[in-house]
Every structure is written in structure tokens, then in C-alpha cells.
Amino acid sequence: MTLLAVEGLTISLPTPGGPLRVVRDASFALERRQTLGIVGESGSGKSMTALAIIGLLPAGATAAGRVMLDGEDLLMASEERLCALRGNRIAMIFQEPMTSLNPVHRVGDQVAEGLILHRGLDRAAALAEAARLLDRVGIAQAGARLRAYPHELSGGQRQRVMIALALACRPDLLIADEPTSALDVTVQAQIIELLRGLIDDFGMALLLISHDLAVVGEIADRVMVMYAGAVAEEGPTAALYAVRAHPYTQGLFGALPDRLARKGRRLAAIPGTVPLANELPPGCPFHGRCPKAAPICRETPPPWASHAADHRARCYFPGAAR
């Protein structure tokens, strides 16, 4: 059975001006031991999608559609059930390693907490396991580091601790929301390398949200491109990177494909800005910035166009770059 199947996910956030639909009708699937990369500009709804899966949307937010984990709809699940799954079968790593650890608790205890909660270990056993985990994520002298406080660690080390914390109960699904954006370039590479090794070892599925197309290209099996809260294109990494069916995807990659090869390649600048969710134009949300825009694009949202059996884009004029 598919590990994670998201169908028609629509997320509304409460704002003073009424509910704001920040994710619209997103559907995708993730198989066991596979990696799905989500890319898109800032504000395209990547984090909200991730938070909806783990059930930690901001207060007052509502999610419609279905989020199926092994056939169980998480959007319907009770808070109690979600607490039993979180940190246990689904885990998440956040963007800010500096603030994501509690400054007043020792890192060992923070890693051990999930083990005590889900595995029923006593504190000593949980700490011993925490030491093994810290060692596995590449923290030197892990046993001694258990007693360190977060402020005594570097940014890279803290993100390693976050990874150990997330992996503690050997989850089936790991969500990593821009795990390296806040780190130095060299550290970024190390962390990505670590993640890649870990998903093999632990047999996890990984949902990787990133701005870094090079990283996603290296590690993801499939890639999903989001724009203004909707999925613009989705397909196998190699095919999507080669074809770039959606003009937005082409924009993300920029005009020169060979520059992609460069390490640390960030999203290219596309002229214009993402329309806000409350002022979305009718038709295709991208038409205002799209070089291929035709009259129909302003009127009716485009349907899915299949490029291959498992590669589709939401565009009237999908096609290869250039």
C-alpha cells in the first residue's frame, strides 16, 4: 500500500479579512523508502502542506481533502491518535535549528523524550539510545554531548540533534522542511549527505522541502513543483528536470540549464511576484508572469496535461524548455 497519499488537500488559514486558502487541491503520493521533493517560491504553501500532514497547522486553520497514511485518514484522526503517530511513525525536521531545540533542556533529554513517550523506555535506556542516535548522526563524543545544552552546539550540530530527535522512533515518514536553509553551504552538503545515508539505513520515506534544486535533484525520486498554493507540475526527478513541462518550472530553473549543475543553485528569479491567496486571478494562477500566457489562461484554470504516465503539469501549453 502507498505510504502517504494526499488527495485534494485544501488548507485555509484564518485572517482578519476572512479565511485564506493557502493550499488548493493538492494531490500527491509517496511510496515507502522513496523521496519526494517539494519546490516552489516562498509562500507557495510548502510548509503548510507539511504541517497539515503531521497535524500541526496553526490554530484556527482548517484542512479539507484526505491525508492517507497507510490507508488511515489523518485529517479525520483524533488528536490522541495523532499524538501517538507524531514522533513515532511520522517525524519532522524544521528549518530553524537555532530555535527548534528547547534552550533550557539538555539535548540528550530532548532526544530521549520521544523514546520514553512512544517506546516506553525508562530514562536511562532512552538516554543510551539517544547516545547511539547522536553518534549515528555524526556528533563526536555523543555520550558526553548528551549533557550539553543547545546553546553549546553549533548550528550544524543542532540540526544533527534535530535529525536524531526525529529519527529516534524510526518513523516510516520523515518530513524535512528546508533542513539546510539556515546553515552554511559546506554544512548544508554534510547534512544532506547524512540524510541520504539515513533514509537508506532506516528505510524511511522522505518528504523534502527545499529551495535548492540541486539538492532535490540529487536525492529525490520524484519532485513536485508548487505555485501559489497549487501543484504546478509533478513527476519523476529525471524526467521533470529534463522536460520542465510547466513554464513556472522553466522559470525556476532559469534560462540556462547548465547552470543547474552548479552546487547550491537557488531558484532563479522570475519577474513579478506570487499573487496572494486572497487576490488570485481567475484562470491559471501563473498567467500574470507567464511568457506563454494566452487569453484562455486568464479565463479557465488549465487541466492536468500528462507528459508521461507519471509526469503531469497543469498547463495549456506544456512543453520542453526553450
Partner: peptide, 26 residues
């Protein structure tokens, strides 16, 4: 509203447990 509370919730702590173990001390 701190990030570490979100981390605690992502670990599977209930709202109440996160409050007692992570919020109050801070």
C-alpha cells in the same frame, strides 16, 4: 509560539504535556 514547542508537538507530546514540560520553564 516558540519553535521548540512545535518540535515538542512533532515528537508526539500532547498540547498539555508540551505546556508543562517545555513552555512553563521558559
Amino acid at each position: 509560539a516558540e519553535d521548540y514547542v512545535r518540535t515538542a508537538r512533532a515528537k508526539g507530546l500532547t498540547r498539555r504535556a508540551a505546556l508543562w514540560r517545555h513552555v512553563l520553564r521558559n
